[in-house]
Each structure stands twice: as structure tokens, then as C-alpha cells.
Design a protein around this nucleic acid. Structure first.
Length: 268
DNA sequence: AGCCAGGACGGAA
DNA sequence: TTCCGTCATGGC
């Protein structure tokens, strides 16, 4: 068991922030997270966070996953005092962090996310893991399912995924999986590219447009200057930034502000 | 009971 | 280029 005092960290906010769809509520406000081929239970009491794992796993996996070496207070202090909207967003969701999720998993999840509700996205992802994910066992001997590898999806026809209720997105997944397995799209290479080039390469995948590509850049590749505009952010921009969002002020980390805004717009 | 969701695609103009 | 109809599904 690892415990750390972590400022600007709120587990509930992170779990609800819509970046990762594999947080499940556990006992006493704790969460079980399935990610990076593992399953972790973690919880929080005030600014003290506990991780049910050893020191080595914490340092090599979860510290980078939750971006714990970054000072989010600095991001928040960069927000203009006159910007009442972002100040309120930070007051509501200042414990959010930009995660470092696996690339392939993020591609699949955000292809599923298009024209879909978060609650149903979670269900679709869960269905997919049950159908095609490898069964694993956590440290308590409980079975769970890892995220399906591209090879498993590439072997499927869209009709094979019918039980996952993905709708028209099923064909996007099988097609993208084949592009990855064939090497037509090289994820290893994309992971090493700068933001603009990574975004462009990701958009070669079937079912990945500008918005989804930017989500992947932000939530997997940690290009925190990516600024995905979905319906919620569109509403935020129209209502509160009719003259345009102050991108220059937040150059280099606008994606963090996007995430505060998104969470605030969700109204949770 | 509809509305709409973290949009993308293909074809038309 | 931009614009528009279409695509599945079910939570709310």
C-alpha cells in the first residue's frame, strides 16, 4: 500500500472527467481502475491518496499515469482573475489531471465516444473488453478483462461486435485495427511525433476526425496543448468566449483548460 | 416519448 | 473548400 499527499488531486473528479472509461466505484468512495494491463484500487482522504500496489508499480506506472510530477497549481495560477468562467470551472474541478493512457485503448474509446453519451460509452467499452479482452487476475484473485489488443479486433467483422452495441462505429474499429496490425498506421512512430504530426497521422485511421484525434493527443500522448472541441466545449465557447478563447494566454497547455471547462460543462 | 450525445464519412455543390 | 444527409443506440 502506497500513500502520498498530493495537492490538486481529486480522484472522484478524475474518474468522472471523461478521459478514462474504466474507473469503477469501489467501497467507501474508492475506485477500481483497469489500465495499462493492470487493475488498481485507490482511494483518497483529503489530500492523502492511497494506491493498493507496491512502490515499484506506483513509481513506474501510476505516478506517470496520473501525472503526479506536474504542478497543476501552476496551471491554475495562470488563469486570469477576471475570467469568472474558468475560475468557477477550477473551483469545481481543480482536482482533475491529464492522464497518460495507452494509445490504442484511447483510440478505440474515443472512436466509440463520437455521437454517444458517456454512460453508454462506458457500457460499450465494457462490452468490448468482455468479448475480446484477455482475462487476467488482480492481486486479490479476482478476474477482470484487459483492453482488447488490435490483433483481436482486426480478426473481427463488424457483425462479430454486434453484442457490444457499438452501432455504426463497429466498422470504424475493425477497420482501424487492421490499419494498425498491417503497419499502415504505426502507433510506435506516432507516439514519438510532435503534436501536429501525431494528430495528422491519427486522422488516417478510419473513424478518427479532428476532434477524436485531439482527444487521443491529449489523453494518451500527453500533448497538453491539444484542445478538442466537442458539443460541450462548443457551448462553452459560444456562451462565455464569443470573441474567442484566450489561446495565447494558455499556449502550450490549453488542453488543461479545455479539461476544466469540459468537466464544468458536464455539471457533475 | 423524444432528444441528443465528447462526430465522421461520402457525395454534392 | 464547405455543406449536408446519414449513420446506431439507448440514457435521460
Amino acid at each position: 500500500m502506497i500513500t502520498r499527499r498530493i495537492p490538486d488531486f481529486n480522484l472522484g473528479q478524475i474518474a468522472r472527467s471523461g478521459q478514462c472509461f474504466r474507473f469503477d466505484p469501489a467501497e467507501d468512495g474508492a475506485y477500481t481502475l483497469t489500465a495499462r494491463g493492470r487493475q488498481l484500487t485507490l482511494g483518497q482522504d483529503g489530500d492523502t491518496v492511497w494506491f493498493d500496489c507496491g512502490e515499484e508499480e506506483f513509481s513506474s506506472v501510476w505516478r506517470p499515469y496520473f501525472d503526479l510530477d506536474t504542478d497543476y497549481g501552476a496551471f491554475k495560477r495562470a488563469v486570469s482573475k477576471q475570467d469568472k468562467y474558468l475560475q468557477a470551472a477550477i473551483a469545481a474541478g481543480g482536482g482533475i489531471r491529464i492522464l497518460r493512457q495507452e494509445l490504442w485503448e484511447t483510440i478505440v474509446c474515443f472512436i466509440i465516444s463520437q455521437q454517444n453519451h458517456i454512460a453508454r460509452i462506458k457500457k460499450c467499452v465494457e462490452n468490448l473488453c468482455l468479448l475480446l479482452g484477455e482475462p487476467c487476475y488482480n492481486k486479490h484473485g479476482e478476474r477482470y478483462f484487459c483492453f482488447p489488443k488490435p490483433e483481436a479486433l482486426a480478426l473481427c467483422e463488424p457483425s462479430d461486435l454486434a453484442c457490444c452495441r457499438l452501432g455504426y462505429r463497429a466498422k470504424y474499429l475493425t477497420q482501424s485495427a487492421r490499419q494498425v496490425v498491417s503497419g499502415e498506421v504505426d502507433l510506435q512512430r506516432i507516439a514519438a511525433l510532435p503534436y501536429e504530426e501525431a494528430r495528422q497521422e491519427l486522422m488516417r485511421l478510419t473513424g478518427v476526425g479532428v476532434k477524436v484525434a485531439e482527444c487521443i493527443c491529449l489523453y494518451a500522448l500527453h500533448h497538453i496543448d491539444a484542445f478538442p472541441v466537442d458539443t460541450h466545449i462548443r457551448a462553452m465557447l459560444d456562451k462565455h468566449y464569443p470573441k474567442g478563447f484566450p489561446m495565447k494566454r494558455y499556449r502550450g497547455f490549453a488542453g488543461v483548460m479545455q479539461q476544466y471547462g469540459f468537466y464544468y460543462e458536464l455539471g457533475v
